[in-house]
Nucleic acid binder design. Structure first.
Length: 425
RNA sequence: GUGGGAGUAGCUCAAUCGGUAGAGCUCCGGUCUGUGGCACCGGCUGUUGCGGGUUCAAGUCCCGUCUCCCACCCCA
């Protein structure tokens, strides 16, 4: 038997109804915050992610699905392509390629699959889905303003609340900018040098590849060492410091609860200043339901003009997991089951179904070979409220038998009144 | 990439020391050809994840492999 590849899965009814419910709610929120949809390719040049996400990140160095796309002719040279592991680089590439700065401030959102070759786990798949947004534009458009950061965070809190997700936590930090972070990195490297050898194997590796991540270490023995390391917050320059304070003040004004976590770092190289994470307790070890931050230098890194921006990505799989709603509860059941009765009655049933569906009635249709008993059982199991009997008697008289499955009541309804009668419930 | 647990019918699970693969639920049909849910009767579904090995005999023991789950790592 051919099975879905490792880390991928089929989403089936009724779960798909829940996914559609989430996406509809999300689109509704994006609409009132004036975000508009962008759809970028599912694969891009490998170089885009190498330069955008960062060569040294785990994502680029070991988790990407990359292949050589061979040229079709002598003159056609081959190129390296990669299934997108995240969507921000693609959006920023599109911003540059389509000269979106002409539109001033862009507020864009996307919903779609992403791919990372990781070992599958609860809340972690090789093909997973992200709902994300980016606010990006030339600085004069306001893209650099702390007001944008706060607006995005407030929108996210609203979104989670609307979906009925309770018990989330917003953690916030500032990771500095290209001007102040190098000084901090240098200080951190210096402070780590003499103590690295006493730390865990992961920290020894991190100290070389990505010193900021040392702050993520959970090994108890390392904590006293980490406590004494220089803090990012001490190295923020005045502009970054003010930006961070402004964001917090706006959040307080709009009554969004948050906690500052000065050990919060992000795994992608492009993040600057505001970095954040919404976590949820019911998700197991993969407790980050969404994450994001500002990426003021990304456009330049990809060869574009300065274009400050802030964005986030929601793990849609994890979002759906943390919903308390059941899939059943958002599923709209058929309104009526039409039971053709007797040879040739499929034709009459088809006509009836067509008429009813034109009136937005959800119709399920049987077959003339089915016994009436089967129609009732099918309707009952599927929680369909009415069974409409399309038999020879009814076809001749023009009045059809409509039975309410729950109450057992049965009435005769003229053809023209069927839709109204069924929808009235 | 590392460590642990698990894979038997559509689902949940059983199978003694290695000795004929089972139960419940679901599903299908009938009792009942135009009135359901109940009841009774009958029935289907298996390369025991896959591939090797040991054995007279393997769901069971051994080796390999795949997948899922949990954790690390990492991230959303």
């Amino acid at each position: 038997m051919i099975k879905a590849p490792r880390g991928t899965r089929d989403l089936l009814p009724p779960d798909t109804a829940l996914w559609n419910f989430v996406e509809a709610a999300v689109r509704d929120v994006f609409r009132i915050y004036n975000f508009h949809e962008i759809r970028t390719p599912i694969f891009e040049s490998t170089e885009l992610f190498a330069r955008g996400v960062g060569e040294e990140t785990d994502i680029v160095s070991k988790e990407m699905y990359t292949w050589e796309d061979k040229g079709r002719a002598e003159s056609d040279k081959s190129q390296m392509l990669t299934l997108r592991p995240e969507n921000t680089a693609g959006v920023v590439r599109a911003y540059i390629e389509n000269k979106l700065w002409d539109r001033g401030l862009n507020k864009l959102f996307y919903i779609g699959p992403q791919f990372r070759r990781e070992r599958p786990q609860k809340g972690r798949y090789r093909q997973f889905y992200q709902i994300g947004a980016e606010v990006i534009g030339p600085a004069p458009s306001g893209s650099e303003s702390p007001a944008r950061d706060a607006e995005v965070l407030e929108m996210l809190a609203t979104l989670l609340d609307r979906l009925g997700i309770t018990g989330w936590t917003l953690e916030l930090n500032s990771v500095g900018c290209k001007d102040c972070r190098p000084a901090f990195n240098e200080a951190l490297r210096k402070a780590l040098e003499p103590v690295t050898a006493t730390m865990c194997a992961d920290c020894q590796r991190r100290a070389v590849t990505n010193p900021l991540r040392v702050f993520d270490c959970k090994v108890p023995a390392d904590q006293p060492i980490i406590e004494k390391l220089p803090r990012l917050s001490e190295f923020l320059d005045d502009a970054c410091r003010k930006n961070f304070v402004d964001v917090q003040e706006i959040l307080t004004a709009v009554e969004i609860p948050f906690t500052v976590n000065d050990r919060l770092v992000r795994g992608l190289d492009y993040y600057t200043r505001t970095a954040f994470e919404f976590t949820h307790g019911a998700l197991g070890a993969q407790n980050a339901i969404l994450g994001g931050g500002r990426y003021d230098g990304l456009s330049e890194a990809l060869g574009g003009p300065p274009a400050p921006g802030i964005g986030f990505a929601i793990g849609e799989d994890r979002l759906v997991m943390s919903l308390t709603q059941s899939a059943e509860s958002v599923l709209r059941k058929p309104d009526v089951y039409i039971a053709p009765l007797g040879v040739g009655m499929n034709r009459e049933a088809a006509r009836l179904a067509r008429e009813l569906r034109r009136h937005d009635v959800i119709v399920e249709l049987g077959d003339e070979s089915f016994r009436l008993k089967k129609a009732f059982e099918t309707a009952s199991k599927a929680s369909i409220r009415y069974v409409l009997i399309a038999g020879e008697n009814e076809a001749q008289s023009g009045a059809f038998t409509l039975k309410n499955i729950e109450s057992g009541e049965q009435i005769s309804v003229a053809r023209a009144e069927l839709a109204e009668r069924i929808r009235k419930r």
